[in-house]
């Protein structure tokens, strides 16, 4: 599972920053059938959480309505320099983790 993260390297304290994450995932809806007529089991990233300096700042619960290779974006306030930890899990139990650092300058 490949994921890409986009957030500024540095930000001023109190600044609103945009955080984006794109994950490569088929997001199988569970409504499709294979060539033999058997239902393809649902397999979507059901939960994604983002922690910033160990505090949860974003959580998404996704279902069949989200397209493959989802791209999520949210805004948060830059508090102190620290690490963003992205964690997600899909219906097949596969987990993914990505990390990114943010440096906050006293503004």
């Amino acid at each position: 599972m490949v994921a890409r993260i986009q957030l500024p390297k540095t930000a001023a304290r109190g600044e609103v920053i945009s955080v984006r994450i794109a994950i490569q995932h088929p997001m199988e809806t569970g409504f499709r059938f294979d060539v033999n007529g058997r239902a393809v089991p649902k397999n979507v990233i059901n939960t994604l959480t983002v922690r910033y300096n160990n505090a949860e700042v974003f959580r998404a619960e996704m279902g069949s309505g989200i397209a493959a290779n989802p791209l999520l974006q949210f805004y948060t306030v830059a508090g102190a320099s620290g690490e963003f930890v992205f964690e997600w899990i899909d219906d097949a139990g596969q987990r993914g983790t990505e990390r990114a650092m943010l440096e906050v300058q006293p503004g």
Partner: peptide, 15 residues
């Protein structure tokens, strides 16, 4: 380049 989902494959190719 971030919204382009094809870049996920490019990132994988780089690895």
């Amino acid at each position: 380049d971030f919204a382009n989902p094809g870049m996920l494959w490019v990132a994988r190719g780089e690895k």
